[in-house]
Amino acid sequence: MNENLQALQELIDVVAKLRNPDGGCPWDLEQTPQTLTPYIIEEAYETVDAIKSGDKNAIAEELGDLLLQVVLQAQIASEHGDFSLKEVAEGISQKLIRRHPHVFGDTSVESVDEVRQNWEQIKAEEKGESGQKPLLSTKLDKYTKKSPPLTAAMKISQKAAGAGFEWENIDGVWNKLAEELEEFKQALAHETPQQQSSEFGDVLFSLVQLARWNNIDPAEALQGTNQRFIQRLKKMEAFTDRPLTEYSLAELEELWQRAKKELLT
């Protein structure tokens, strides 16, 4: 057996044993496709981070963690008679063959752009959308399925603006943000948790509009803030000789300002 296939089979066997009611792992046995969903997202992010770092060992490890999620989902599905890893692998192989007729068929291409055009055309034919002009709502809905929420909000905002769904000037964006903030405050005071969540989402979406008008990537901006927060916290901990939980709020604020100042110098 090919070494790669042998290693993959070993992983399949390990996962099957973990899911075996007779001697398997209690944690693995209680998992469902739904409970494992957060781990798929988490492992995907960690894989991307490893690739950005260029650390080959970290990349291999994170790809393994991501592969585990695929095998685990397929194992659970096979236990319910839905599909197996075989169908998953065959499905993606056939899709790649169909969408690369210039490699597996007689089609000729002259550029990468032609490859992309062929891919989209074949994809549309597979979904029965060939020759149809897609609705704007259909286009935007795709972003909610393939992008993190903050990135999806920015793309939805850009496409909607391109279709004319736009304010005349930035004053309208500021007014909308103020309106949504007030509605959020009212929801916190009088509405259900579900309505509060809905209004908070509207505030975030308005902030994304403001970012778009100022050519700011909201996801990148938030990532920067996350990193700065951790850097300041790390600096605070370097100043202390006991856990932060043992400090008063006033002392923590003083440490925070000291850390912030040092990182700026």
Score class of each variant (00 low, 15 high):
D28E: 04
G105L: 14
W119G: 02
G23K: 09
K127A: 15
V203Y: 07
Q34G: 10
I41F: 10
E182C: 02
I40A: 06
I156W: 02
Q121H: 14
L11N: 06
E62G: 13
F239A: 14
F104D: 08
E254F: 02
E42R: 15
A161H: 06
G54M: 04
W213K: 00
Q31R: 12
E191Q: 12
K260F: 06
L181R: 05
E262Y: 03
W27A: 08
R242L: 09
L255S: 07
P38Y: 14
K146L: 06
R212Y: 11
N175M: 06
K56T: 09
K95P: 06
S111N: 04
F205Q: 11
S84Y: 05
E62A: 13
M154G: 00
S248G: 04
L252F: 00
G224E: 11
L210D: 02
T192N: 12
G64L: 08
A44Y: 10
L255N: 05
A77V: 05
K17W: 02
R212V: 07
R116V: 10
L8R: 10
R232E: 10
N214K: 15
L68V: 05
V203T: 08
A160F: 03
E79A: 00
Q257N: 12
L177A: 01
N175W: 01
L8W: 03
A77G: 02
D202Q: 03
V109S: 11
V15L: 04
F229T: 14
R228A: 13
E125Y: 08
K17A: 10
W119T: 08
E220P: 00
R228E: 15
G131D: 13
E168G: 06
N226T: 12
I97R: 12
L72Y: 07
E30T: 12
K133F: 11
Q209S: 09
Q117W: 00
R242W: 01
A124K: 09
K95D: 02
L68K: 10
L150C: 05
E46I: 07
E246H: 03
E183S: 01
N215K: 11
K142S: 15
Q69I: 10
I92C: 06
S108Y: 14
T192R: 13
D49K: 08
S111E: 02
N20L: 07
N118W: 04
N2G: 10
N57T: 03
N215F: 04
D49C: 03
M236C: 15
E199K: 14
N2P: 15
L63K: 05
P134F: 02
A50E: 02
V71I: 13
C25M: 06
I12G: 00
K260D: 15
E10R: 15
V70P: 00
T144Q: 02
T245L: 09
K145S: 13
Q75G: 01
S197A: 11
L85Q: 03
E251I: 06
D49N: 08
V70N: 00
R242Y: 05
I41T: 14
L72K: 11
P148C: 01
A58I: 00
N4S: 13
F104V: 13
K234A: 15
Q195D: 12
L188T: 07
G128E: 08
K123H: 14
D217I: 01
L11S: 08
W27F: 08
V203D: 09
P149Q: 05
L204V: 15
G172L: 03
